[in-house]
Computed example of a mutant assay.
Amino acid sequence: MSFFGVSPYFVAVFIFGAFEKALTAVIQTQQTVLAAVGEDAEVSCQLLETKDVLQVTWQKISNDVQENVATYSKYFGQRVNDGFTDKVEFVYTGLQNCSIVIRNVTEQDEGCYRCLFNTYPEGSFIGRTCLQVYELHEPVVDVRESNSTEEWVVSCSATGRPAPTVTLSVSQQDLNFSQYNTVSVSNTNATFTVTTTAVLSGSRKHSTQVGCAARVLSAPHREVMVTIPHDNDEKSGSDPRNLGIRISASLSSVVLLVACVTALIFVWYRKKSQSSQSHRQVEMNVIPT
């Protein structure tokens, strides 16, 4: 059905757009939504005051460019605009409470999303949520001995966007880090690799765990732990390399023992065989009377 040859959907958008006002006090929404690359991000708005809402409109604003994303109305139902059909879906549809989800977010999905509760004759009540997309990979820790027997050089690298914050920690209280050095490298894919290096010193009474945590914005951090074995553990063979040496030595001893036993059996069997042959030869030389 059309109105003077124009789709009702576009008539509704035109009418509601003409009455749009910056009425934001009664909208409940998040100011910022964080989402990692590849995750889904949900954006929702709730109108706290009861109003005669005719349609809810979602818009995206990025680099001062405004795009209509999706709409929901009682008469026309839900509709996702071209260009967003494979990206945006409705989670909950209501004229007082409405939410959408942005699938598999990328850097291009960053921006602010507006929800407009279009009413008549008051106009549009507007809420605004900004989506921040971040990237954070698992940190990589490297531990090596320094020139001093009671010092270790600990290095941790983390890649993300924006540049992550890298923090080192140690489980043993009487050990401490010093001589911190942090280097940030900009990568061609707009990510940053941050490497923090420090010297761990002190007397280790037992095995120690060294941790590295990487964080971007206020998103959940990612952490890895590495165990530094104690000297006594290494001497007692807790080091897998020492265990491998012991296993190799044991196998060599077993092989040598088996070879010796085989040689003895061979010598014994040969002597026995020669003795039997000599006895038969003597019997053959005896002349019966």
Rank of each mutant, 00 (worst) to 15 (best):
R79D: 13
V80M: 02
E67I: 14
Q28V: 11
K87Y: 02
V69H: 04
V88E: 02
N97L: 06
D82L: 13
L47C: 11
V53W: 03
S62Q: 15
V37M: 06
C45W: 14
I102N: 00
L116S: 11
F84Y: 15
D109I: 01
L116V: 04
I100A: 01
Q31P: 05
Q28W: 05
F90Y: 13
V105Q: 02
V33F: 02
G111M: 01
F76I: 14
G111H: 01
S44H: 07
A36V: 09
G83E: 11
F84W: 15
E89L: 08
I102H: 01
V91S: 08
E49C: 01
Q46L: 13
E49I: 08
T106R: 12
Q46R: 15
I100R: 00
L95F: 08
S44A: 15
T71P: 05
Q78W: 06
S99M: 08
T71F: 07
Q30I: 02
D52Y: 12
V101D: 00
C115E: 03
Q108D: 15
N97E: 09
V80H: 02
Q78R: 11
D64Y: 09
S44F: 07
G83D: 13
D109L: 00
I102S: 00
C115H: 03
N81I: 10
T93V: 09
I61C: 03
G83M: 09
T119F: 09
Q66K: 13
I27H: 03
T106S: 12
V43P: 02
N104G: 03
V37T: 09
E39A: 08
A35Y: 03
V91G: 07
T29D: 10
L34D: 04
E110F: 10
F84Q: 06
N118R: 06
N104Q: 12
K74C: 04
A41H: 00
L47R: 06
E107G: 10
T57N: 12
L54A: 13
T85Q: 13
A41F: 00
S99G: 13
V105F: 00
N118P: 05
S62R: 15
I100G: 01
E49W: 04
T57W: 06
V37L: 12
G83H: 06
N104R: 11
E42F: 00
Q66I: 14
Y113S: 02
V69M: 02
F90V: 07
A70I: 08
K74G: 10
V37Y: 05
I102W: 02
T29P: 00
D40G: 05
C115F: 08
Q31Y: 07
Y72I: 10
V37Q: 09
Y75L: 14
D40M: 04
Q46G: 11
E49L: 10
L47N: 05
S73L: 08
V101S: 04
V91D: 08
Y72H: 06
Y75R: 14
E49M: 05
E42C: 01
Q66N: 12
T119P: 07
Y92Q: 14
T32E: 13
A70R: 09
